[in-house]
Structure formats: C-alpha cells, structure tokens
Amino acid sequence: MDERTQMADRMTEIRRSLLEAPADGLVERLAAEAQRVYGCSALRLFQVDYRLAALLPLDGGAARTRPGDPAWRCFDHQHLVDSDGVTYLPVTVRGERIGVLAVTGVDPARVTGAELLEVATMLAHELAAVRAGTDRYALAARSRRLTLAAEMQWELLPGRSRERASFGLAGQLEPAYAVRGDTFDWSDDGHRVWLSVINGMGDNVAAASLTALATYALRNARRAGLSLADQAALADQAIYSYHQGAQYLGTLLLELDLTAGTVTAIDAGSPQLLRLAGDEVVLEELEEQFPLGMFEGSIYRPQRFQLEPGERLYVVSDGVFDAAAEAGRYGAGALDRFVRRSGSLAPLQAVRSLLADLRAFVESDLVDDAVVVCLEWHGARPDAAGR
C-alpha cells in the first residue's frame, strides 16, 4: 500500500471518529486519535476571543496573547508553525478563523505537515457543525461575560471572515463584549457578494432588537431574489410599520459582482465607505438617502462604481470616525494611515490591526458602538475546492 493510500485511510479513520464524537468532546476525541495514529503526546485547541485580542485554550490555562508568539503567527499568517517541539496549525473553515491547534510530539517520520493541516481543517468543519448544539466552544472563546445585547448581536452574525478565490471579507464589532446596535451581514453565491452594515440606534437590548429586525428583513428580501433597492425598501417598510418613524437605522448596502468587479451601493444614511487602491485611500462619495424606517414608503436609488482587482473597500461606522475625531484634529488623517498600513494584510488581520491602531491612537478601548468591515476583490477567479 503506497503512502497516499495510507494517508487517505488514516484521514478516513479520523473523520469517522470525529463524526461519532459527542458535540462537546471533539477535541478530546481528536487528541486520542492523534496519539493513536501519529504518536502525538498532547493536542490543545486555542480559540480566538470575541475581541480578536487573545487565543484562549479550550481546556483552561494561560493564553498566548503576545505579538510574535508561535500561535499568533500561525493564526495571522494561516500556515503551520513549528516551535520548541510544538506544531501550530490554523483551525479555519471557509475563511472563518476559529483558532489554532497545538500538537506536541509530532514525529515527522509518521506524519507530514500537509496531513496535519488537513486534520486541523477537518476539526474546523466539525466545530462549525456542532456550535449550535453546545455552548462549550462559545463559552471558552470569551475572556469575560457578554452583555445581553452583545449576545444577541454576535449570534446574528453570519461569521467574522470569509475567503473565496475571488474575494476576501472580514468584520469586527466593538466594544466586542458590550456592543449594542451596530452590526454587519453578508452572503455570497459564487457570482455575487451581498454586504450590509448597520449603524445602530438606541441602547442595549432595544438597539439590538431594532438591528435584528432590520437584518432579518434584509435577509428575507435578499432570499426572495429582490434587487438591492427593493431589499432596502422592504426593510424600510418593516421597520416603519413597527416603529412609525420613532426609530430608524443608518445602513449601507453593497452588492459586488465577482466577475466584473462592479459594486452596486445604497447609502441609507449609512456608515462611511473607504476605498484602498494601492496606497491611496479615497472616501467613496455616495448619495445619502433616508435611513431605513425613518419615513413611510421611501424609494431607494442604487449607485454603481467599479473596483479593480486587488482594491479594497473598508466600511467604517460612526463609532470609529467619532473616536478618531475626539482624539485630536488629525483623527481623519490617522484613520487613513491605519487603512493604508493594513493594505498588505489579510482582511481579518487588517480589521484587527486597524482597530488596534485606533485604540492606541485614542489611548483607550472604544466605548461607543463601532464596526469595521473589509472587502477585497481579487478579480474574477474560479474557485478551488472549498476548505
């Protein structure tokens, strides 16, 4: 039996074992299999926390949070890292970065790095599949308790990052453990990406409830196959019918054609849109229209503009601009620098870096709600096999 067939057999055994494992026992089952099949002495899962600031071990103990640590290098660069007898592997499913798997005692004669990377990806798929049925992994990814509003907002998200051959996408909510009304949503079908970013109104659970209503209304319209303008109109009607204009939401809706790079946009009193083209940061000028739910029967007009391969869009909510402005008269210029500096990073790294730069600039954590979303179009490319 050749090595390729042996590897396939080993992977089949591990996959079957994970499928048979209880939802809350995936990592322990994988650790036992890794010891049996590869002779590894230990296996631990580290999940990235809600703030993108710590890698928290599932089994308790100290977290690796210092810049330059092997676990963070693995997470940031998404490749295998060997250090002091430990092999670190990215645990990522379809671009959603869950964390890092640390495997101790790897014998290169028994297993290759490529095989271990496949095992980590297999674990990522299983973690994604069971998260709705157990709280174990969600609880272990928290460094402190979420507020109720934040719990609602994080459960509403489609994910925090997404990667396909033609685009990369990532977003983050701040303050991560106490966010109230700001959020984002996205979907793609291989031909288009739809993105909405909501600048919430109100406080606490009331703000989260209003945002949830808008998000579900937009999803309902999108899934009915409606145009972007009709999606905005349906959500507008849903919010107005419930709140009669007393509450409304600033929202930016985008639709990216993954073949042509054409962006269709509706600025409904929205967060601001920055374009990064090379080293140039440009505020994309859009026609500002009524926020969703402000008036009965608003009509929305889409605009279009063209992206070139490699260009990025950053959607930045008022909380980010306000924090930069309050820190000094050069806040807008500082934000441009942060965006420019993040251009060489993957979208999730870029979002994390931009917010870290902003915290350093204002010399504190962000207090008001803030959202940053990064969308990069790579150009028209056929998808490789999904991971």
Rank of each mutant, 00 (worst) to 15 (best):
W377G: 07
S342E: 00
A350N: 11
G278K: 03
L292T: 02
E287T: 12
D322M: 14
L366C: 09
F305T: 08
L345T: 01
W377Q: 08
F305N: 02
D318V: 09
F361G: 00
G328E: 10
Q306C: 05
D318K: 08
S364C: 08
Y300C: 11
L345E: 04
E363C: 14
A360T: 02
S344P: 01
A350S: 15
P309F: 13
L354A: 05
S298H: 13
R337P: 00
D357Q: 01
R301E: 07
A370L: 09
Q289D: 10
G343H: 08
G328S: 02
R359L: 01
A360L: 12
R340M: 02
F338G: 00
Q349D: 13
D322N: 15
R329Y: 01
F295D: 11
A332R: 14
G379H: 09
C374Y: 01
L354R: 11
A323E: 03
P291L: 14
I299W: 12
G331N: 01
G333Q: 13
D318I: 05
D369S: 09
E311R: 11
L375R: 06
G319V: 14
G333W: 04
A332W: 12
G278R: 04
L348V: 14
L355M: 15
E311H: 13
C374V: 15
E311T: 09
E363T: 11
E326N: 02
D357P: 00
L283N: 03
S317L: 04
Q349W: 07
S344Y: 00
P291M: 14
G319Y: 10
A325V: 01
Y314Q: 00
S364F: 03
S298P: 12
S353I: 00
L307V: 15
L283V: 09
G278H: 04
R312I: 01
C374Q: 05
V282E: 07
L335P: 09
F305M: 09
R301G: 02
L283M: 01
G328M: 03
S298Y: 14
F290Y: 15
V316H: 07
P291R: 10
V339A: 11
G343A: 08
D279I: 02
L307P: 08
L283C: 04
V373T: 05
L283S: 06
L366I: 12
R352I: 04
E326P: 00
D318T: 07
D279H: 13
F361A: 00
R359F: 03
D369I: 10
G333V: 07
G310W: 06
D336H: 10
P302Q: 13
D365C: 10
Q303C: 08
R312Q: 14
E311Y: 09
Q306V: 13
L286F: 10
L307D: 05
S364W: 03
W377M: 11
E326K: 08
F338R: 00
V351F: 10
A327S: 06
P347G: 03
A350I: 07
R340S: 07
P302S: 14
A327R: 05
F321T: 14
D279K: 04
E308Q: 13
A325T: 02
V316R: 10
A332P: 06
L375H: 09
G379R: 08
G297V: 15
A356W: 08
G331H: 04
Y314F: 15
L375T: 11
L355A: 04
A334Q: 02
E284P: 01
L307N: 06
A324N: 03
E285H: 06
